[in-house]
């Protein structure tokens, strides 16, 4: 009992480590090259971004279509720390990691704070109106960044130290999954899902919808900010126009094509759709045509996304887990497996 409980919780960690080992092995054998690794890192950042969007759109049922704005705040926030405030040349090697982590935290906090501040007045807006405000927010941030000369204005920032390697990306994706899963299966996640499924009933059942929407928005913005910080330290070069509406709509595509309201869906969507355009490069200018067609066909024929609402076992917490975690059996209550994802 005890052992199996332990095993279940470390299994994903072992799996992830094995995957990382495999990639490194492929790299040392010359099968995977730096280009592949680079794409994998982008995919990791995109997974985090998609999870972040999933919290707001998939679980809370709100429409953010300007999430690139939070990503850019995180990217700039953290890059300013490692590039402008502390110059890479003066940071001693031993301090690189703490500085890097601190910068990610700052990036996340900046994004979260802005998320909180814009959420406060706007989350009362309904559906599409909220969507358009988030779009406006994203574009205002982008145009605003283009105006600030010390951070390179429209030219952007170059020379951001490339601290983020594949191992860091793996770690942060895993942490994000862990945190998002935990929160979804808590009071907070349940409140979000209640608001998503029926806001009037949620309110009538004592759920302060504005408050929980703001929590959702702020949490989501924090993840997006950290992801943005990682991104900056992968590419070494950030520019306001990288975080345009095109970026936001890419993220929406990852989310809904993968399957919104499912963590597995976010992983699959971001991973697949980040690598698909790369894999299609041989098609030259027809590449995005095919990509667009694939997207429309997925939306038309698979409304729940590619994963169809499936959730990997370690990305959900069932009632059985709740009991087994405490070493208890639930003999007196029958347990059926919920077929579709239960969120």
């Amino acid at each position: 009992m005890k052992f199996s409980k332990r095993f279940k919780s470390i299994l994903p960690v072992i799996g992830l480590a094995a995957l990382y080992g495999l990639i490194m092995l492929l790299k040392s054998m010359g099968i995977a090259n730096n280009y592949h690794i680079q794409i994998l890192m982008f995919a990791g950042v995109n997974i985090m971004m998609t999870l972040s969007l999933n919290v707001v759109n998939g679980f809370t049922g709100q429409f953010s279509i300007g999430h690139a704005g939070f990503m850019s705040l995180g990217a700039y926030g953290s890059a300013i720390i490692t590039t402008l405030i502390l110059k890479p040349s003066v940071i001693p090697a031993s301090m690189e990691i703490p500085v890097f982590l601190l910068s990610l935290l700052v990036g996340g906090l900046v994004a979260a704070m802005v998320g909180y501040l814009i959420g406060l007045p706007t989350l009362k807006l309904k559906g599409d109106y909220l969507a358009i405000v988030t779009l406006a927010f994203g574009e205002i941030v982008r145009a605003g960044l283009r105006l600030i000369e010390p951070i390179g204005a429209a030219r952007g920032m170059i020379g951001v130290p490339n601290y983020a390697n594949l191992a860091w990306i793996f770690l942060f994706v895993a942490l994000t999954l862990f945190f998002v899963r935990n929160i979804i299966y808590s009071r907070f996640g349940r409140a979000w899902i209640a608001i998503r499924d029926n806001e009037i009933a949620a309110e009538a059942m004592g759920i302060d919808s504005t408050r929980y929407k703001i929590i959702s928005f702020t949490f989501s913005a924090f993840i997006a900010g950290v992801a943005g910080g990682l991104y900056a330290h992968v590419v070494s070069f950030i520019q306001p126009d990288t975080f345009s509406f095109v970026k936001s709509s890419d993220l929406l595509v990852f989310l809904y094509a993968g399957g919104s309201g499912s963590l597995t869906g976010s992983i699959v969507g971001a991973l697949l759709l980040t690598s698909l355009p790369e894999a299609l490069r041989f098609l030259a200018s027809w590449r995005l045509v095919i990509y667009a067609l694939v997207l429309v066909i997925v939306m038309l024929y698979s409304p729940k996304g590619i994963t169809g609402g499936y959730e990997l076992p370690f990305l959900r917490i069932t009632r059985k887990d709740i009991y087994e975690n405490r070493g208890k059996k639930i003999s007196e209550t029958p347990l059926q497996e919920t077929k579709e994802g239960d969120v």
């Binding site: 808590s186 009071r187 349940r190 899902i193 209640a194 949620a202 059942m205 919920t338 239960d342």
Partner: peptide, 25 residues
């Protein structure tokens, strides 16, 4: 009827406990 349609029966009821829950973020 205004249930939380994509949540299980148990979760529907747990959702109405939000107010009384002392779980912290």
């Amino acid at each position: 009827i205004r249930l939380f349609h994509n949540a299980s029966v148990v979760d529907n009821i747990k959702m109405a406990y939000t107010l009384h829950s002392s779980e912290k973020f």
